[in-house]
Design a protein around this nucleic acid. Structure first.
Lengths: 219, 219
DNA sequence: GTCTATACGATGATAGAC
DNA sequence: GTCTATCATCGTATAGAC
């Protein structure tokens, strides 16, 4: 793909830029980040960034791409497995939890990428297309998993698109909720105990919602 | 509270500004919005805005405040009712769905307000405090509802804070998901049919997750 | 209450030396 | 590849006329 001389090297400027930009974009959004700030934190002059990326949009796109690719890597096992859908579902949610918990900026960046559509000009679309493709890929695989589970009779007959949306929201939001989330929790979000508890709770929550027969007290 | 001469009048400049700003903040985030853009869309000069609001942060805070107050109004009945917790839960989720579906910018603005913490200076905190207070109030009431349901034996013994987080994510995210969500749905988010289906699906999802006895296939 | 004019810093991006 | 200018533009905010 890109300039990749030797598959690995001591963290190139390129990767340092991506790391710094990722943290900043997650915290402040696309419009809220200045390239001067990025450059300063990397230890470069502002102009040096343009040697690595043609512009701000391109940098943002590559940051997003990298985040989603990391998540997909984590989900691959769940999608490729062939056991019961219930087990694959649990693995999918756990994989997503792990990916988001391991890399704090990921969740915010992910949700932000949904919101910041209107910020880009039409001519930026080619630059952002790969990101959209990756998102479409992973949501498609999740939908497939749910459809399969329903077909096998393992899940209730829910609206698959709505269930996908619910799962995304239930899992991703938590790791993006920041101070509000920590106020609700009464403690940190990314501590080891909190991450473990969250993984268990949200997996059981979704599992129960999909597997159980139509709720007793409900028409 | 503010300048409220007569409780009602033909839409004052003030309210028009709030409406326009709300749409823009939801679409482009705090940093992505220029006051010039707001002024232009209202039909005012840029400087005229400062006659109604002392600054950008203040405008943003009031927009957010208004959105959350609208939501709380919708949730009031659910919180004040005294029937079974299962019924109050359903009413709460439906109320939240209605509030978010009725006012398209609300969900994005709400989630954005969680993300944009780091954008503000310490001296802006007093301005933003009322918003935080309202969020804390509504999440507190939701937690109370869940605790009561567990105490009555109507709900599973879940972690209440995690369940609150899950509910927020499951419900709010959907209405903020924009193009990605519409791609998953294969249709619009805010159409009447879509809104009705969503309300039913997500209410049943959460209701089932909380009410059902621990999932069969699960340890 | 709204306008014009303006101050003044920060922004993304470019050019060219080293 | 990194740097030092430099550019044109746009940002919030202020002052003062109408």
């Amino acid at each position: 793909m890109h300039t990749d001389p030797g598959t690995s090297s001591s963290p190139s400027s390129r990767e340092k830029i991506l790391d710094v930009a990722e943290a900043l974009f997650a915290a402040q959004g696309f419009a809220g980040v200045s390239l001067a700030d990025v450059a300063a934190r990397v230890g470069l002059g502002k102009s040096s960034l343009f040697h690595h990326f043609p512009g701000k949009v391109s940098l943002y796109a590559e940051v997003s791409e990298r985040v989603i690719e990391r998540i997909i890597q984590r989900l691959q096992p769940a999608f490729e497995a062939s056991g019961p859908a219930t087990e694959r579902l649990d693995r999918m949610i756990e994989g997503l939890c792990d990916a988001l918990a391991e890399h704090a900026p990921a969740a915010r960046l992910l949700l932000r990428s949904l919101f910041e559509d209107h910020l880009f000009a039409p001519e930026d679309e080619p630059t952002l297309a790969p990101v959209e493709a990756l998102v479409a890929k992973v949501t498609g695989l999740a939908a497939e998993l749910l459809r399969d589970g329903i077909a096998r009779g393992e899940f209730r007959e829910v609206s698959v698109p709505d269930a996908v949306q619910t799962v995304i929201g239930a899992v991703v939001y938590h790791y993006a909720s920041g101070e509000v989330g920590e106020k609700i929790l009464g403690g940190p979000i990314f501590s080891a105990e909190s991450v473990a508890r969250r993984r268990r709770e949200v997996t059981t929550f979704i599992h129960t919602a999909l597997v159980a027969s139509p709720a007793p007290g409900k028409a």
